[in-house]
């Protein structure tokens, strides 16, 4: 029992590291988004998708290095050929290009005031899917905790609406919903695959799939590779490998956490990235710590404690006879 609990508690630590590093990843990537190269109005869709493609491609490369250094490269080959990798590949499509492209389209058509709160619901969506498809045990207290984490994330990320709603508003909302379901279902599909696969190798499969689809399908559809070389060779070129390394670490911890402590707990703790992102922004940039941020932080912390709850519940994650 003690051994099992220590395993699950290590999963919680991984989930927390994944939230912290994802927050840092966002702050580093924001340096790229602030570059004049990516700010052109005509690149509203191509710029974030190019950043996504570069991020996931470098991330796949760093994971190849990690798996090579830890003697897992042959395991990667075996995993890519196995049936158990299919849900991971499907999850990569949903959580990578599909969710990211939908999120960007949602922001464009409906604006951040509506899209951010909708997409912040992804841990709740994932927990519902995990309870239904993986039979994951989620206590009533943990559902409340999860709700608090989502509310805290919404308070921190809230942006007031600007101007009137255009004709494309409802299309934007639909895209936001697709992004929310995409991110939510990725966690469940990946966790299902990781039942029989090593998390570090499964993640490498995820990033290889995501980067391939970005490079071969999404970017050509979104306008091509016009920004690809200028982004890499310009003054912001360093941002992509550095952010991707932070992102790879974050994803690695997130995937391990979902495998070790369950989707709902890992997701609820991972969503604290909004809080960590603001803390890093306050340290490295000129973002002010407002009352809303402090309120959001307190709510997220309370929610996290409620989700983690009684450690003994973590010894067996699923309701399986």
């Amino acid at each position: 029992m003690k051994q099992n609990l220590s395993f699950a508690k290590r999963g919680l630590v991984f989930a927390l590291i994944s939230g912290i590093t994802w927050g840092l990843d966002g702050v580093i990537l924001s340096l790229a988004f602030a570059s004049p190269l990516l700010l052109g109005e005509e690149y509203w869709l191509l710029a974030p998708l190019t950043v996504g493609a570069l991020h996931d491609s470098f991330s796949a490369f760093w994971l190849l290095c990690f798996n090579g250094a830890t003697g897992r490269l042959r395991e990667l080959g075996r995993t890519l050929r196995s049936k158990a990798a299919r849900p991971v590949i499907l999850g990569a499509l949903f959580g990578g290009p599909v969710a990211m492209s939908s999120y960007m389209l949602g922001l464009k058509f409906a604006g951040p005031a509506y899209v951010m709160p909708i997409t912040a619901l992804y841990p709740a969506v994932a927990s519902v899917f995990a309870a239904v498809f993986l039979k994951e045990k989620v206590a009533v207290r943990a559902w409340f905790g999860l709700l608090l984490c989502v509310v805290g994330g919404v308070i921190i990320g809230y942006t007031p609406p600007e101007g009137s709603l255009g004709n494309e508003f409802y299309l934007g909302i639909a895209f936001a919903l697709v992004a929310t379901f995409g991110w939510g279902i990725e966690g469940v599909l990946a966790t299902s695959g990781m039942d029989l696969l090593d998390p570090a190798v499964a993640l490498n499969v995820r990033q290889l799939t995501s980067s391939s689809v970005y490079l071969l399908v999404v970017l050509p559809l979104a306008g091509g590779y016009a920004l690809f070389v200028p982004a890499l060779t310009g003054s912001i070129g360093w941002v992509f490998p550095v952010a991707a390394m932070t992102g790879a670490l974050s994803y690695l911890c997130w995937y391990r956490a979902m495998n070790m402590t369950g989707v709902s707990r890992a997701m609820a703790i991972n969503i604290t990235y909004s809080l960590w992102g603001l803390l890093f922004s306050a340290v490295f940039t000129e973002v002010e710590i407002t009352a809303a941020i402090i309120t959001g932080a307190l709510i997220i912390t309370t929610g996290m404690i409620m989700v983690v709850g009684n450690p003994k519940e973590m010894a067996c994650l699923r309701s399986i006879q």
């Binding site: 051994q3 099992n4 039942d195 495998n259 994650l317 699923r318």
Partner: peptide, 27 residues
């Protein structure tokens, strides 16, 4: 898994704990 560093008792132990946590194995 000949000559693979990855195939160690430690890796197997980690996999067993993970398989136990998701209900595939029982203590």
């Amino acid at each position: 898994y000949p000559t693979e560093r990855y195939c160690s008792v430690r890796s197997v132990h980690e996999h067993l704990m993970s398989l136990k946590a998701v209900g595939i194995l029982n203590d």
